[in-house]
Each structure stands twice: as structure tokens, then as C-alpha cells.
């Protein structure tokens, strides 16, 4: 544990390239809902054959199934965020370690997982992890979605590491000097002085990362997880692959994500603003 405690000298390195910031406003929601209605009405008007049910009826009929799929997306996002954050916290502390080899290794891991395409990491996990997992005499099937969780938690880990490093480095050097001259150990400096201040600054980028991760859970559909996008495709085929349903159904999925992510984006913006004023 000692080697991963930062020294002030290590903290004067370049700041990181940030992830895109998700900026959603209520206008986006209205726009989406408007488009969905438009598509739906247009689709109804185009397909006038009496045997077909209206698009609204189709959406209503499949809503429970789609929500079920969406719940899996949320579950994947929460689990990957939890795992990624736990691992990323350690990796981030290693990034600011005074121990050069450890810092170098952490830097390599971080760069690799931050810059690798998320989908490639997902495919990698799907194929690298066994179908059956044996622990002692226990043997159980690893469902695909759990592999997706692991695959997505890797880029999350690397991004959290950067957030931790950036947060710690944003604390003025004087805080280290003052606490050091009062006799605090490096361990005490980090946990009592630096991190309590840094965590507040880490919160907005961390929430932004979660919003990005949530949208990225749809990648899991490509590797065969029954998430909301996969289910939307199945709904389409069940309805006889009507082309007029394409836009409404995927638009509907889009709205689910909007409704979930908008409050997060809003809270992130509020927090950013609040801490800007106070610091």
C-alpha cells in the first residue's frame, strides 16, 4: 500500500484528455418525443392495410418486454461502473505513485484500456472468458451479460483512474506542504487532506462517465446479450419486419435512454457549477 501513496513532486504532470461531456437538455427530449410521434403517425398513414395493428398499439404491446431488456442495460451499467470504479481507484492512485515502475505500469494499463475501442474489448471478453466457470467443485454457467459487464468495466476502470489522478492533481501543492510540515504521514495526507477535497471534484466527471457507459451498454447487443436493442430487433421480426416500424421502435428505445440519462446529465451540470463557485 505504501508505494501507491503520492508525493507532491509526481503531481506536476500533464492533465489528461477528457471524455466527451454529455450535455442533454429538455429540448432534446421534446425533439425526440416529437420525432417519435411523427414517425408513428407517418407509419400509420402509410400502412393503411386493415390487418395491421397501429404502431402505437405495437409499441404498447411490446413495452413490458422492451423495458425488461432496458433493465438489463441498466444492470450491466451499474455493475460495470461498480467494478470499474473499484479497480480504477487503485489504478488511479498507482498513476500518482512515487514508485516509478509501478507508475509506469499503471500508465501503460490506463492508456491501453482508455484507447482500445470498447467493442473490441467486449468481443475479447466474450471469447476469452469460459462458458463454464469452475471454482473448486462448483461449476456454473457464465451468462453472456456477465461477460459484457467485465468487458465494459475495463475501459471504465481506465477512465476512473484518470479521473482520480486528475482530481488529486487538481488540489494545490500547498495542501501537501502544509500538512507535511504539520507532521502528517503521506497516508494521512492522502486520506484526511487531499482525497476529501478531490472526491468532490471527481464526482462530475465520474457521473459523466456513467452516462457514457450507459449508452455504451447497447454494444452488448452485438455480442449476443439480450439487451434492449437486441429485443427491439426481435420485436421487429415478430411483427413481420414491417419497415414502417423501424423508426418508431428504435426511437422508443432512444427515449428510454434519454429519460434515464437526462437527470444524471442535469445533476452533473449542477454539481460542476456548484464546485466551480466554491473553489
Amino acid at each position: 500500500m505504501r508505494v501507491i501513496l503520492p508525493l507532491p513532486e509526481v503531481l506536476q504532470r500533464e492533465s489528461s484528455r477528457a471524455l466527451p461531456v454529455i450535455r442533454l437538455s429538455w429540448r432534446h427530449g421534446i425533439l425526440l418525443a416529437g420525432l417519435l410521434c411523427l414517425f408513428t403517425i407517418a407509419a400509420d398513414a402509410a400502412g393503411a392495410a386493415p390487418v395491421r395493428s397501429s404502431v402505437f398499439a405495437v409499441l404498447a404491446r411490446w413495452t413490458p418486454l422492451l423495458l425488461h431488456g432496458f433493465a438489463l442495460n441498466i444492470l450491466i451499467s451499474i455493475l460495470s461502473m461498480a467494478i470499474g470504479t473499484a479497480l480504477g481507484a487503485f489504478l488511479g492512485l498507482a498513476l500518482i505513485s512515487p514508485d516509478r515502475p509501478l507508475r509506469g505500469a499503471a500508465w501503460g494499463v490506463t492508456q491501453f484500456f482508455r484507447n482500445a475501442p470498447w467493442l473490441v474489448l467486449l468481443f475479447f471478453m466474450i471469447f476469452i472468458l469460459p462458458y463454464h466457470l469452475h471454482i473448486g467443485s462448483f461449476s456454473f454457467v457464465l451468462p453472456d451479460w456477465s461477460k459484457a459487464v467485465i468487458g465494459l468495466s475495463l475501459p471504465v476502470m481506465a477512465n476512473v483512474a484518470e479521473i482520480v489522478r486528475g482530481g488529486v492533481q487538481s488540489i494545490p501543492k500547498g495542501q501537501w506542504e502544509a500538512s507535511e510540515s504539520l507532521g502528517f504521514t503521506r497516508h494521512q495526507q492522502l486520506w484526511m487532506i487531499i482525497l476529501p477535497q478531490a472526491v468532490r471534484r471527481m464526482l462530475p466527471p465520474w457521473m459523466n462517465l456513467y452516462a457514457i457507459l450507459t449508452t455504451s451498454t447497447t454494444l452488448a447487443s452485438i455480442v449476443g446479450v439480450n439487451d434492449v436493442v437486441t429485443l427491439a430487433g426481435q420485436v421487429l421480426s415478430a411483427e413481420g419486419s414491417r419497415p414502417d416500424l423501424l423508426a418508431p421502435i428504435y426511437g422508443y428505445v432512444l427515449i428510454m435512454f434519454y429519460v434515464y440519462i437526462y437527470p444524471i446529465a442535469w445533476a452533473t451540470r449542477r454539481l460542476e457549477h456548484k464546485y466551480q463557485v466554491h473553489n
Binding site: P172, G174, Q175, E177, A178, S179, E180, S181, L182, G183, I193, Q197
Partner: peptide, 14 residues
């Protein structure tokens, strides 16, 4: 450091 106290230009309060 038990024997030496230091005060800084920028206060550096927590």
C-alpha cells in the same frame, strides 16, 4: 516537525 512550525504565504488552510 514537532519542533518546527511553518506558516505559508498562501495560508494553505484545509
Amino acid at each position: 516537525r514537532k519542533h518546527v512550525g511553518m506558516v505559508f504565504q498562501q495560508y494553505n488552510l484545509f
